[in-house]
C-alpha cells in the first residue's frame, strides 16, 4: 500500500470515528413553583385588556457545560410580544445568537434590560415595522426582559456558551441528543437562584438517564 492508500485508510478511519453515533441524555428536572398569575395595571386605560392572561408554566433549561466553539453562522431566535406577554417567557440561546422581538399586539411595548450581560432599550415600535428590532447576545449570563409600559411583563434569556441545551417540558422532562461522548458536566438551570449540576460519562450511541433532584434533595445544587 502506497502512501496515498495509507492516507485514504486513515481518513476513512477518522471519518468512521467522526460518524460515531452521538450520545444522549434524558430525564426529569424538579421545577420551580409556579408564580402567581400577574394582574395587568389598567387604572388609567380606556380600553380594558388582559382580563385573561396566558402565561407559561415553569420550565427549566438543561445544558452540557463546556467550552464549545461559537456558531459559524449566528443563530436567530425570537421572543414575541403577544397579548401583553412575552412568548416564550424563558429562552435559552448560545452566545452570539441574535434575538428578534416582534410586537404582535396592536399596542406599544417598550422592551428593556438592565442586566449586566446586556443592557438595552428598544423603545416603542409597531407590529408592522421592519426590520424587527433585535439584539445580539454575546456574553453568557442571565438577562431579565421587562416592558416599560406593562410592568407585569417579564421574560428571561439564558445565554450559554454551549450549543447543547434544551428547555424541559412543563412536566420537567427533557431529552438532549447529539452530544459528544466523554466526561462532561450536565447542568439544569431552574430559576435565577437555582442551578443544579451533575458530572456525567456519556457513551457514544447510548442514552443516559439523569434526574435532577427537587428541593428536598439538593445534591449537586450550586
Amino acid at each position: 500500500m502506497n502512501l496515498r492508500g495509507l492516507t485514504c485508510v486513515f481518513a476513512l478511519a477518522l471519518g468512521i470515528a467522526g460518524a460515531a453515533p452521538p450520545a444522549a441524555v434524558e430525564g426529569r428536572v424538579a421545577l420551580a413553583a409556579a408564580r402567581p398569575l400577574p394582574v395587568v395595571n389598567q387604572r388609567y386605560e380606556i380600553v380594558t385588556r388582559g382580563g385573561v392572561l396566558a402565561t407559561d408554566p415553569p420550565v427549566a433549561i438543561v445544558y452540557l457545560e463546556g467550552p464549545f466553539p461559537p456558531p459559524v453562522d449566528p443563530p436567530v431566535a425570537e421572543i414575541r410580544q403577544k397579548d401583553l406577554a412575552f412568548v416564550p417567557s424563558l429562552l435559552a440561546v448560545q452566545a452570539g445568537t441574535r434575538v428578534e422581538f416582534p410586537n404582535d399586539d396592536d399596542t406599544y411595548h417598550n422592551i428593556f434590560s438592565f442586566s449586566r450581560p446586556k443592557r438595552f432599550d428598544l423603545g416603542r415600535y409597531r407590529s408592522d415595522e421592519r426590520p424587527v428590532p433585535s439584539q445580539v447576545f454575546n456574553q453568557p449570563g442571565l438577562i431579565t426582559l421587562r416592558c416599560d409600559i406593562h410592568e407585569h411583563m417579564r421574560a428571561l434569556i439564558v445565554v450559554l456558551e454551549t450549543p447543547h441545551f434544551v428547555v424541559t417540558g412543563p412536566d420537567g422532562r427533557f431529552q438532549l441528543g447529539g452530544l459528544p461522548a466523554g466526561r462532561h458536566t450536565l447542568k439544569a438551570w431552574i430559576d435565577s437562584r437555582t442551578t443544579r449540576e451533575v458530572v456525567v460519562e456519556l457513551d457514544a450511541g447510548k442514552t443516559l438517564r439523569v434526574d435532577f433532584p427537587g428541593a428536598g434533595n439538593p445534591a449537586g445544587e450550586r
Binding site: 408564580r35 402567581p36 394582574v39 431579565t144 407585569h152 435565577s192
Partner: peptide
Amino acid sequence: GAWFDDLEQALSFSSPGGNLRGR
C-alpha cells in the same frame, strides 16, 4: 433585584385557577 422579586411575589396572590388574582 432579587429582593424586589421576592417582595413582588410576597405582595401577589392568585387563586388556584387564576380566576381571582391581585397585586
